[in-house]
């Protein structure tokens, strides 16, 4: 299953880059994230509860960032599992400075295993896109909030 998309945010590339490495920020923005703890250099253990119909359940997983080229590009590997099955994915996130701020482009490949693989790829893709969309919206929101509080202080 390929996941491709992009989102432009009105923030400087360095800020978006920093947010992507910040466990506290990720904990706040990853949908259903209950725990996110660093487990080594550029890797995290995560616990997530997902409420989207076909893949509903609690998952435990690992996120690893690698091939970092700050503040332009990184690769990410995700692996996890829970009651409804397991998933494994790898992808590239690129940040591009544009007139409106930063354009985040992602391109990844994910595979699913067990019951979630059987519920229909159509459902799965739309669920994954929904979750990704949610993540990016929240990231954008949080960056905005952070900006405000910075200004306030």
């Amino acid at each position: 299953m390929q996941l491709i998309g992009s989102r432009t945010m009105p923030y400087a590339r360095e800020r978006v880059w920093a947010a992507l490495q910040d466990p506290a920020m990720l904990r706040k923005t990853l949908p259903g994230c209950e725990e996110l703890t660093p487990s080594g250099e550029d890797s995290f253990d995560a616990k997530v509860t997902i409420g989207v119909a076909a893949i509903k359940g609690r998952y435990k997983g690992k996120v690893r960032l690698f091939d970092l080229e700050p503040p332009r590009k990184l690769r990410m590997a995700v692996e996890g599992g829970g009651g409804p099955g397991r998933m494994r994915g790898e992808g590239t996130v690129e940040l591009e400075s544009v007139a409106e701020g930063t354009k985040l482009v992602y391109d990844g490949e994910a595979a699913t295993f067990g019951p979630i693989a059987r519920v229909g790829q159509r459902l799965l893709r739309s669920a994954a896109n929904k979750l990704l969309g949610e993540f990016l919206s929240r990231l954008e929101q949080e960056l905005g909030r952070e900006g405000e509080s910075e200004r306030a202080s």
Binding site: A111, T112, F113, G114, P115, A117, R118, V119, G120, Q121, L123
Partner: peptide
């Protein structure tokens, strides 16, 4: 099946 051996037609939906 997909290349990983996952049954894609894995429910009455598919």
């Amino acid at each position: 099946y997909d290349a990983n051996g996952q049954l894609l037609s894995g429910s009455l939906m598919d």
